[in-house]
Design a protein around this nucleic acid. Structure first.
Lengths: 145, 145
DNA sequence: GTCATTGCAAAACTTTTGCAGGCAC
DNA sequence: GTGCCTGCAAAAGTTTTGCAATGAC
């Protein structure tokens, strides 16, 4: 959060209370993948409601600053999570095709692949996103009946 | 296309002309990532316009049958491509953060990782999707100025 | 002939935008 | 005090849905 203040000062963005509480919502919900509406609801529940449009604008701003990462799990809305100070601390997502739950999977094995892409394609890789689709343990059990 | 007829007969879906020409549009545009509206436009341009709602319904059906794969490149609409008879013939996507163009990258190296995920997480992996974000060669040149 | 499927229009959602008022700096 | 930000409401865009008519089997 201190980093954020620094970052905002440098770029001359204003550090409004709305921007702070949006980020705080993500700090309070690590490991989740919040949509704009999720954030809006969280803030309302803690009596610090702000305009939904402001939530959207803040999410976009924080994504541009790489504080958040925008992602899509195919449920018709964008979701965001804190960008874990990127370099190499990467995790991937396991999306259950049956119940839709999203789990995380820690792994760093993709760095080699990133280099290969850069070399073979002349494409300057900045980041990647990897999703696995399948069936979680619970849903596997259920379908064994 | 013959496979499709077979598949439809088995599951007692009706093989309407609309469903055929939607699939044909994908066969005619391999390597592209068509949105519902793209398909609708393509069909209109060849004077075989069908209802947009039908396009959506057909895309969903073909995705459920794993004939198409639904994907998201962050431009606010879903895109689809033919599912290259999955097993191991996988390609990934290189998305340029500057111009938004999407290129493909051929690679099979993820099978090992899929197994690792399955083993470590008790998650039955069916498919995966990998996106690389970065800058394409053209945009790299442009920014060197 | 039956019943899934289509087309159209309306509805439902998510996200964006215009603008007057407010607040961080 | 200035100029960026917010909130509200309206607009824009994509996707879904209800229903009567149509067409595949």
């Amino acid at each position: 959060m201190a980093q954020l203040k620094e970052m905002f000062r440098e770029r001359q963005y204003k550090l409004t209370s709305q921007r702070q509480i949006v980020l705080q919502a993500f700090l309070d919900h690590q490991g989740e993948h919040l949509s704009a509406e999720d954030v809006h609801n969280i803030l309302r529940d803690q009596s610090s409601e702000i305009g939904l449009a402001t939530v959207y604008r803040t999410l976009e701003l924080l994504s541009d600053l790489s504080v958040l990462q925008k992602m899509d799990f195919g449920d018709g809305r964008s979701r965001y999570e804190i960008n874990e100070d990127s370099t190499s601390h990467h995790h991937h997502h396991l999306i259950c095709l049956s119940c839709g739950k999203v789990r995380e999977f820690e792994d760093d094995l993709l760095d080699a692949l990133e280099s290969a892409v850069a070399r073979k394609s002349n494409f300057a890789v900045v980041d990647h996103q990897l999703k696995f689709y399948g069936y979680c343990q619970e849903c596997q059990k259920k379908s064994e009946t």
